[in-house]
């Protein structure tokens, strides 16, 4: 009858019905919409052979775009880590008028469509924009430079860090902080040695999520980027350009590289995180 009866070791018995139906639909949808198309991508990339893949991958324009995407995403994630912790701290520990409103607005980068964020940031930071004009007077150019790319990626990644850190800060044990204060540690030392180590695993998760999102981000970046090859052309945009030129192999190679590097980094972060959690548990 059902698969579960043929393979008793694979599934624990349960009186709750619907296992075959719901798992079947889950696997069917997941397979058709996610797994199969991604396998097709990898197969297409491998169909050009090692030499062809290497040639497409080591093209200077491709390398430049990948370096920019991963580099800008890393800088943006670090900025998000610093300001995300600060904002989470302020929202959890302090009371000030409008706190709940600000807390709700943190999720705006999640909710605001990327194209809207993109044209708004580009207009705001363009040389004739509200902030861009001020920066231009000081001799800075923000929009249409790599700096503009980092700015858009900071926007897109911020909620990941704040939302990861907030619950941990809220649940932190205040009595340990009190004990440190009573033992004579000044406030900064208490924060550095008691509070921050407790939030490191959550901070790492949030920063990794912000980084992963930023690497692949397209909509909020292309309007502010300037899109000059080798200078301000991100990898997702180069994929779109290759597609428009019907260079399917080129597009596929960049996509495969991006996916592989992202997954390797996320895997490394997972390892680092379990190590951090173990060390924290030991202390």
């Amino acid at each position: 009858m059902s698969l579960a009866q043929f393979l008793p070791r694979l599934k624990q018995p349960s009186v709750i019905p619907g296992f075959g139906l719901t798992l079947g639909f889950t696997l069917l949808a997941l397979g058709l919409i996610v797994i199969f198309p991604l396998i097709a991508l990898v197969l297409k990339a491998s169909s050009v052979g090692a030499a062809g893949f290497l040639q497409a991958a080591t093209n200077p324009r491709v390398l430049g775009a990948l370096r920019l995407s991963f580099g800008a995403a890393a800088i943006a994630a670090l900025v998000d880590a610093v300001f995300g912790v600060l904002i989470a701290w302020v929202l959890v520990r302090y009371n000030f008028p409008g706190r709940k409103l600000i807390d709700a607005a943190i999720d705006l980068p999640f909710a605001l469509p990327t194209a809207v964020a993109g044209i708004a940031l580009a207009t705001l930071y363009a040389p004739n924009g509200w902030i861009g004009a001020l920066a231009a007077k000081a001799g800075f150019k923000i929009a249409f430079t790599p700096f503009g790319i980092v700015l858009a990626l900071i926007f897109i990644g911020l909620p990941f860090v704040v939302r990861s850190v907030e619950p941990v800060l809220a649940e932190a044990q205040r009595d340990v902080e009190e004990a440190a204060a009573l033992l004579g540690a000044n406030r900064w030392r208490t924060v550095r040695q008691i509070v921050l180590p407790a939030i490191y695993p959550a901070l790492l998760t949030g920063t990794a999520l912000a980084f992963a999102r930023a690497v692949g981000e397209y909509g909020s970046v292309i309007f502010i980027a300037g899109n000059i090859p080798l200078v301000s052309e991100i990898a997702p945009l180069l994929i779109v350009i290759k597609l428009e030129e019907f260079d399917y192999v080129g597009a596929t190679v960049i996509a495969t590289l991006m996916l592989t590097i992202s997954l390797l980094i996320l895997l490394g972060v997972n390892k680092l995180q379990s190590r951090l959690e173990m060390r924290y548990a030991k202390d």
Binding site: T114, G216, A255, L259, L263
Partner: peptide, 10 residues
């Protein structure tokens, strides 16, 4: 963890 552009490309 997949870029939106890659989600279309596949």
């Amino acid at each position: 963890s997949v870029s939106p552009v890659i989600s279309g490309l596949i």
